[in-house]
Design a protein around this nucleic acid. Structure first.
Lengths: 202, 202
DNA sequence: TTAGCTTCCGATCGATCGGTTGCTATATTC
DNA sequence: GAATATAGCAACCGATCGATCGGAAGCTAA
């Protein structure tokens, strides 16, 4: 029925699949993201979906990549122009809070990375490795900013960047839980207070 | 073939189902816990499994209850006899770290509460409510100990117990991720260092 | 001893899972 | 303009999902 589209249209179709995939996976998880559900939502056949990826695992990896792009666009980009070190880190932290507060408008079911991390942390496979890689990458970026902050003198010279990054990630895991599970409106301010205690020793 | 067992045997069968359910769910999630998998693992029929619970949702709730009992037994009980307030809280925190470090011996796939929290935080239903209730209960217990610590003078009078409990939970979410996803052997010590900074202002 | 309750099984249900196949119709390439 | 490559569909595959059914078998109370 629907025959071959132009290469450009096909690319657009693939984008639509991945975008919808991110939305579904943020609610149902990357395993709960099924081909049939995608096909129904997009008014396509299952074969039409799978044709773009070959296997479900590849679809999951593509979904993860898209989510990563969204995260960087929303959390990193707005802060990228700030002066590297503590100022930029501060800006990133604030954007990160905003991201988690309003993520329903981006990911209907909350941060896909947190979901995927917990979903795959007890399994093997390429998806698990991709999730771990993305988390490592992000943590490394945080550590980098912290290091700059230390050498710039914005943080005490005794500061352990890895340690601070570790605690930082914990704060955002707590924030995600408070928002998603408890719908706690106080959580963003709690996070800010904890951040101040963690970073404001200039 | 296998006919009626005595009431005691039936209770034991139910226990075996729930215990195995906890092990499976800690790896696959509470949705990934399937009747067929349980039946195969236990050498029973699917009907035999479901007969004890009626629906999968009830099975999930029973699994969650068992996991809760295990958690309290491993994390709370060993510390329960300590003097209430900061000493007991310290003991609980150390037991909590030990629990997450060695949880593979308890839950093959990591802390079931963290898994369930993320798995159901974007859905409705009784399981989600049960997960939220258990998390709230635990957090309330932490807040109670913190309050005692403040009135005992072991923490500064300006301390906000809710705030500290919030950050505490974040630390353990980070620890769970570091252990399960990254297999990071440094994480327990990082957690202890963060705990000291958070609590040791006596 | 017997009647009834309960545990558990084997079989089966409709739905859905990920994935394959054969095909059509068009875009692209030569 | 002919040959080729390809997007997407309809139909279907075996496996598995949660759930239901009638019956078999033994515990338990009368």
């Amino acid at each position: 029925m629907s025959p071959r589209k132009s290469a450009a249209e096909a690319r657009r179709t693939r984008e639509r699949i991945v975008e919808r995939g991110v939305a579904i996976a943020s609610v149902e998880g990357l395993e709960g993201l099924t081909i049939g559900r995608l096909a129904t939502d997009l008014g396509m056949s299952k074969a039409g979906i799978l044709g773009h990826f070959g296997t479900k695992e590849t679809l999951q990896l593509a979904t993860l990549d898209e989510a990563s792009a969204v995260f960087l666009r929303v959390v990193w980009q707005p802060a990228a122009h700030e002066t590297p070190g503590l100022p930029r880190l501060r800006a990133v932290c604030e954007a990160w809070i905003t991201y988690l507060e309003h993520e329903r408008e981006i990911f209907p079911g909350g941060c896909l990375f947190t979901t995927a991390s917990v979903e795959f942390d007890a399994r093997g496979g390429r998806v698990r490795e991709a999730v771990a890689r993305l988390h490592r990458l992000w943590r490394r970026r945080l550590v980098g900013e912290l290091r700059l902050a230390v050498t710039a003198g914005d943080l005490p010279s005794g500061t352990d960047p890895e340690q601070v990054a570790y605690e930082l990630v914990g704060l955002y895991l707590a924030l995600n839980q408070a928002i998603q599970l408890f719908a706690d409106p106080l959580a963003p301010d709690r996070t800010r207070r904890a951040l101040d205690r963690l970073l404001a020793q200039a």
